[in-house]
């Protein structure tokens, strides 16, 4: 399964899978702490971000697709510190996908979040939130390519 993931994301999935459940949660916490801050230009324009309403905690995301030949995708997320699980998921997607060509992002399997091995520890609702984040990213990328 992991073979169809871009190497950066596949590596994260492998890191999670190599751990016990309790340690997977610790790793997710580390990810939540490393989610980059929103750049100033978005902080001043929250209307440019799309809310992922499927997430239990407020999560906003936006992205830019570069004009270069491979159409690189830049991802931006915003979630409050009191929502570490949501931040952790966003951070996994950021580290695994930021800067990759649009086509690569679009080819990430929709069930990728399930591969992190967190479905027992994290409620189904939260897993659905992460799947929705990925879905919205892919939708925004597809829309940007059409434009």
């Amino acid at each position: 399964m992991a073979a169809s993931l871009p190497p950066s994301l596949a590596e994260i999935v492998e890191d999670f899978q190599a751990l016990e459940e309790r340690e997977r949660l610790e790793l997710l916490l580390e990810f939540s702490e490393s989610l980059p801050e929103l750049p100033e230009r978005f902080r001043e324009h929250p209307e440019l971000l799309e809310q992922v309403v499927e997430c239990q905690s407020p999560l906003f995301l936006t992205l830019e697709v570069g004009a270069e030949a491979d159409r690189p995708v830049r991802l931006y997320f915003s979630a409050p510190p009191e929502a570490p699980t949501t931040r952790g998921f966003a951070s996994v997607l950021h580290e695994g996908l930021d800067g990759l060509p649009a086509e690569t992002v679009l080819s990430v399997p929709d069930d990728m979040p399930e591969q992190l091995g967190l479905t027992r520890a994290v409620t189904p609702l939260r897993m659905r939130g992460m799947t929705a984040m990925l879905g919205r990213i892919k939708r925004q990328v597809a829309r940007a390519l059409e434009a």
Partner: peptide, 22 residues
């Protein structure tokens, strides 16, 4: 908490976590 990781970001000294889901 609702969020399974929230306790780990900082909690009242000496407190233990009980997770409703797991």
């Amino acid at each position: 908490d609702e969020d399974i990781l929230l306790y780990d970001t900082g909690h009242i000294p000496g407190s233990v976590k009980v997770d409703w889901h797991t």
